[in-house]
Design a protein around this nucleic acid. Sequence first.
RNA 1: GGAGAGGUGGCAGAGUGGUCGAAUGCGCAUGAUUGGAAAUCAUGUGUGCGGGCAACCGUACCGAGGGUUCGAAUCCCUCCCUCUCCGCCA
Length: 422
Amino acid sequence: MLDPKLLRESPDLVRAAIAKKHLDVDLDAVLALDASWRAQLQETEQLRSQQKAANTEMAKLPKGSPEFIAKVQEMKALSAQVKEREAQLKETEEKWKQAVLALPNLPHESVPEGRTPEENVVFSTHGDVNAVSPHAKAHWEVAGFDRLFDFARGAKVTGAGFPFYVGDGAKIVRALLHFFLDEAGRAGYLEVNPPIFVNAASATATGQLPDKEGQMYETADKLYAVPTAEVPLTNYLRDEILDESALPVYRCAYTPCFRREAGSYGKDVRGLNRLHQFDKVELLKWVHPSTSYEELDKLRLDAERLLQKLGLPYRVLLMCGGDLGFAQAKKYDLEVWSAGQKRWLEVSSCSNFEAFQARRAQIRFRAKGADKPELVHTLNGSGLAVPRVLAAILENNLQEDGRVKIPDALVPYFGKEFLSFA
RNA sequence: GGAGAGGUGGCAGAGUGGUCGAAUGCGCAUGAUUGGAAAUCAUGUGUGCGGGCAACCGUACCGAGGGUUCGAAUCCCUCCCUCUCCGCCA
């Protein structure tokens, strides 16, 4: 959520932000709504003030006295008026809230102009895409793939996009998660094992609700399966005021992630590329506003280091305004090279939300001596999402004999040097 | 799942219709005292929203939402959560 004061004082900044993100928002309508909400609020508060004053007077009057009875009659009219105005105010407030919630975060000045994903800037490229296995093929075409990654039985038991991981397939998932969590711990993130269902308040605070409702699985008692650990983890500190000295707070969490992916069809749903359930380690930071861009760079490097240690070629994209999410001020995507598919696969997305999430979730800190608490900045990034990293390993490291060479850094976790499909 | 008891400020805890944003204690902050500290004394000490350059003013908030009333922390309804006992269970 954007600062309503910013909207009032500098509507042009907000207008520019909407233009840079190539969104369609009728800002003038929002401004008009804001003005009418404030006018109604003041009127209503003024009436309530009268009511309170009368109440104090009445308390001093003897209960059954004629003055008292007269006052009660008089106040009935005011009371009715207050009720009516409050109802109106509530209605306007609801509209106002929806309108303000629909305003996107301001993109940072360093975010490049652009409308489409093609206009994202290649920030850096690492490793040699030609240095991968000459035997690479799309991972779903590798002989024996279906034994280790059993989509057919997954479809029978649950549905499309819910594979079974079997034998070395299960083992390499566990090895990757273990490796990711250990690395995050070394980088200073405290490991957390959060609930994987959240309530509506939490999903709203991080922005999944109200608009992305259809992307989540919902249970009979109105809980949502987490689409990412970002949701429970960010909400961990919801409605709390931290001590300034506690910042920055670093947390990481592994959770399975559940996404309905309604409306995504076509080529990129093959194999491990897009699943309804997948495993991911998420990195979270709550930081002092003055340091958040420095922290974003460090967060990105923490994610990059994982790909470097796994020896996978990757590139970093700096997202342009049009491809930046609604809530992000700046975002980098990490894409791993998939030698068999001959394309880049997104495996991490590192973002600075500035105070946008913190305002919705009311996560603040108090500076020493300051009278007012201040909103923190939140950042998060994947570190990393398993299936696509796994796809890249399977493809890039495929040997002539059909086995897969396990990256050196992963061998201690996997327990052997080759993954076998046999 | 059943029965009972509860949810009040950073914490403990009073308050059962009006003068209550809320006693008191602890904690915390500032000042006095002290060579310094402890102790003591004094003062202050929540958050959101709106208005105002500001000092400050207004309003809301006593688990959440609704209701009754001129007026609700207090009465009624629904829901959520915690604790105790019983049942069930990894």
